[in-house]
Design a protein around this nucleic acid. Structure first.
Lengths: 294, 294
DNA sequence: GCCCATCCATGAATGCCGCTCATACGACGA
DNA sequence: TCGTCGTATGAGCGGCATTCATGGATGGGC
């Protein structure tokens, strides 16, 4: 009896997990809801465990299902890597033809202001390479979680003591960037304005710095993301302390003030799996990232 | 189109690689030679590369085939782990019922003197877990090669600058052990005896130490392995410089002399794949290894 | 040189397995 | 109560993997 799951079945599981429902997964996979149902049931029978809790609106993974999903993504990724490597190793092909998708997870400001340059140069050098960037909020496991779960090949993340590189991943610091004060241009007393902050910044590197300051902002407003913060500042609503990466291409209606040598900083780096770190495509990307950061 | 290989096809590839021939693989798998031929051809078409060189007596893997085989073994192993873990996590079962085989590759002295304790405690905690230990000579790629090729889940290896953890694997240092002088008990001038060494030790950590010594042994004899070395020393044939792990349970007919603070040392650690590093069984093993080493 | 043994390759027939179609079932909201 | 939005299920069909039978290549024995 064929005891283990076929790649097809794994893809179905992953799709159901992603789409949170059999019907949606079926649409995403271009097959029938019935086929998905049959397939999941078959997988559950083979594994001897219920993988999804079926409910009123869709299906959610059980504990067993979560484990199955994590492994399924890994297996599928390994199969992809196998295909790529074997194709790359066929009969003396030279190793510099990089092709295929390269999935990158990045937080917002990196995706908007760091990656475009990098990916431009990368695709110029390797035209067959198709980078796919996904913007991930830096909360919870952040971009490293995407890599761990097999949803991304490389993640751009802030790296520090509060968010170290997970032990099963490898990574490195690309650049250290400082925070700067940003406020409406020409404002006579910007420090009296309310402080605008955003979710991802909460647990971040600025807290310690604020503790050492005598200056206390009159109020704190929370915005959706750093883009929204910048927009609020530019309309004169408040001031903010933001990393330089978020300030690339800031409009002329805001003014950026250096906070001096004691300003807070954060380290921006990358994380990937050791396996992918050995692959040529990821190595080429890291090379470009290093070049752009240095 | 189903672009990636089914587990069935992977098993065929692995069998052909192991049996070195289509016909032999067929009988091993209980199917027809024809089926094997069709299956391999299909795999080759899907991957776009020739995987086996067909010859007069059997088939041998090409470079591309070797890579495919390594990945195939790992994918199949991952599928097994997935099945075991998901079954362990089914519907409210306590989360850590680990079951199934756990394949460990270790060099001789670790297998004889480090693993028994560790595996005893591991199986006490997880009775359904069946560790399988394979003794691998630490030459060439050593135990890491076994892990890379998917023939072992975890390898015990010496880790250092001359043999780092390969980039596509993860690993860690468990303990640092010193070398000691061992010679026949009661010998009046042990340093005048011939030095007995063994193959795996050749490229090892002692060389540098010897370079700094004024003491030069009168002759060097090479033995099969560290067990043979110890046996030769115990019969009075010579003396040796051996790591402490090889000296556990040494007979009373030998005497062990510390070489002082400048003695050579080596680091013993583990290596595994990132996927397996996330699996519960391997994590439990590493935990026990750490506990035993610390 | 001929033959045979031992491999792998190939084409047609077959049987299983996964897919679709049609339909049933259950829950929720109007 | 009905309509809608989910999943479950059984019947039937089609494709794919396997088998069977056979062909082709290669090297060793005589």
């Amino acid at each position: 009896m064929t005891e283990d799951l076929a790649p097809r079945e794994l893809r179905v599981l992953v799709a159901v997990g992603r789409e949170r429902g059999f019907s949606a997964a079926a649409v995403a996979l271009g097959m029938t809801q019935s086929a998905v149902s049959h397939s999941v049931r078959g997988s559950e029978r083979k594994l001897g465990a219920v993988l999804f809790e079926r409910g009123r609106n869709g299906a959610t993974a059980t504990a067993a299902g979560e484990r199955a999903l994590a492994h399924a993504r890994r297996v599928l990724r390994l199969l992809d890597v196998m295909a790529a490597e074997v194709r790359g190793a066929r009969s003396g092909a030279e190793p510099d033809i990089l092709a295929g998708p390269l999935r990158i997870a990045a937080f917002r400001s990196a995706a908007l202001h760091l990656l475009p340059r990098v990916l431009g140069r990368l695709t110029a050098r390797h035209p067959e390479l198709v980078p796919e960037v996904r913007i991930v909020r830096e909360v919870g496991r952040g971009t490293a979680g995407e890599v761990l779960d097999g949803r991304a090949d490389l993640g751009i993340a802030t790296i520090g003591t509060s968010s170290p590189v997970p032990p099963e991943l490898v990574g490195g610091v690309l650049l250290e960037e400082g925070y700067a004060l940003v406020h409406p241009a020409g404002h006579p007393a910007p420090r009296t304005l309310p402080l605008v902050d955003w979710t991802e910044n909460c647990t971040s590197y600025t807290r310690e710095w604020w503790a050492g300051q005598e200056w206390l902002p009159p109020a704190t407003v929370e915005a959706e993301d750093d883009g929204a913060v910048l927009s609020m500042v530019s309309t004169g609503y408040g001031m903010a302390v933001m990393p330089e990466l978020s300030l690339v291409g800031a409009p002329s209606s805001v003014e950026i003030t250096d906070l001096g040598p004691e300003r807070p900083t954060r380290s921006v780096g990358y994380v990937t799996t050791p396996e992918l770190a050995a692959s040529l495509a990821v190595r080429a990307l890291i090379r470009e990232l290093r070049a752009a950061a240095g």
